[in-house]
Design a protein around this nucleic acid. Structure first.
Lengths: 268, 268
DNA sequence: GATAGATGTCCAGTATATTGGACAAAAGGG
DNA sequence: CCCTTTTGTCCAATATACTGGACATCTATC
């Protein structure tokens, strides 16, 4: 046939057309997929999930496993993240003092209060749990580490947006984000008001937003400029007495402030 | 590291300096380089270090930062590992019960004894610290997390090789590995004997091997089949009294055994 | 402020990485 | 047992990712 002009006027309706793609892009999608799935995946399934040629995926996976970025695990040829990924993740930790200290603080708070405690950040426009420590009776928690959740669904989300002008927040929030799965939808104005309230208050408590049987108690962590860069939060059962909630909030605010100190020079 | 010497006269048909290379391979080298260096690196320096074309590296780094696998940091355009790398590393942790429990145990041992404590594994034929918690007076420790060190230089290395036949160990140890930097060289036979002794003993103590002023106390962690898969170790000052060393070793052996239990089913 | 060097972006051309398909071997399934 | 599906490996062909070089901006050094 003649040369098929690549969509002269309109983009291909289906991107499933045999598109030759960069190996690196496929790898990035592959890693994201593994993260989403959260468990080892067979190479064949990977190819299917990414709609990439099998031979390509085999080749890429070989390179990645040779580099220990992936590991083959299980009796079948399933692959998952490897040791190098772990080490590189630790490098990130080492470069980010706040993360390391916050992780330790979360573990301490969880140990001392017995409550499920989280350290949360804004990542790619979503609320994301960066570390979590389960309380004494670990109940079903709705957010896994590293999985983005719409900001309006959480108390921390209100704090994380404290420094953004309303216009930016509007742009950041997709329509569906205003309707938590197990709770009533809110308007963008209501949410903006909630952000403003959290900003004013210096903490935030929500009830039954993601999970109808829990409260969420959050406190900000600020950088040197005073901007909220992360949060700490407790997830407690709905029947927790108000005075305990207040006490937990005070602990959290105090911890948040101690983590907000200007990063000490750790080099010698 | 200039691991790609100009190679005055290479056998033909090999890369002649300007070798067009796969993007993914460059990325893998890039990540390894960042890990070696251990701090943010400017893109130009990356290109130089990898001896890769600048335009290529810019393009790759752009893809990686867009994916949050790298992050731009600092006033100049330096890049280092990004949040996604951290999350993927956490995924590795979640998939490896042993790592998570060992990390907690290391933190506990360090807190309770005040000694520098490490969790070590065999990675790519080297002894590698997978987690470390500094003691009360954190002194200069010679091994960073994730950095491979020749097996003969450490007490843990002797334990990690306990299940390998002598022939394999010989093949695994490079000649230079038998000469610790601050200590006298050993013969391969001496090392094999030390491995055998560690195997017999169920623990291992070395003195002044990497650092002349420290002892290294190590205990094995075993899998269901009883093979050594990892170790715990204390790094203590050379003047530590023998009875304390014995007591620390006993603690370590006990902790190692508790971690050696068959992995509990954590699924519900 | 002139020189020298780095940085980030852009572009056309080509070496080659990606691709589809073919294949044997293993793994079910009925 | 045969039939179907999946797996892992290999290969030739070509779409394109990588490359080299050119360029305009910045930073430093003297």
């Amino acid at each position: 046939m003649d040369q098929t002009p690549p969509s002269s006027d309109r983009p291909a309706a289906q991107q499933t057309g045999s598109s030759r793609e960069r190996g690196l892009d496929r790898v990035i999608a592959l890693l994201a997929h593994l993260h989403r799935v959260g468990r080892p995946v067979r190479v064949g399934d990977l190819a299917r999930a990414l709609s990439a040629p099998r031979s390509t995926v085999y080749s890429l996976v070989k390179s990645l496993t040779d580099a220990s970025l992936l590991e083959t695990v299980g009796p079948n040829g399933e692959v998952f993240f490897g040791k190098s990924m772990y080490f590189y993740g630790m490098d990130y930790l080492r470069a980010h003092d706040l993360f390391e200290r916050a992780r330790a603080e979360v573990d301490r708070l969880a140990r001392e209060t017995g409550e499920t405690t989280q350290f949360c950040v804004l990542h790619e426009g979503k609320y994301t749990v960066a570390h979590m420590s389960s309380g004494q009776r670990p109940f079903r928690v709705s957010s896994e580490v590293g999985v983005g959740i719409p900001l309006p669904w959480t108390a921390s989300g209100r704090l994380l947006l404290a420094d953004f002008p309303d216009a930016e927040i509007r742009a950041m929030i997709a329509p569906g984000d205003l309707h938590p799965p197990r709770s009533a939808a809110m308007t963008i104005e209501e949410f903006l008001a909630a952000v403003a309230a959290a900003r004013q208050e210096g903490s935030c408590i929500t009830s039954g937003l993601i999970d109808p049987y829990t409260h969420c108690i959050a406190a900000p962590i600020r950088d040197q400029a005073g901007r909220v860069t992360a949060t700490l939060c407790f997830v407690v059962l709905v029947n927790t007495p108000p005075e305990r909630i207040a006490s937990l909030r005070d602990m959290l605010v105090a911890s948040g402030q101690s983590l907000s100190l200007a990063p000490v020079a750790k080099r010698e």
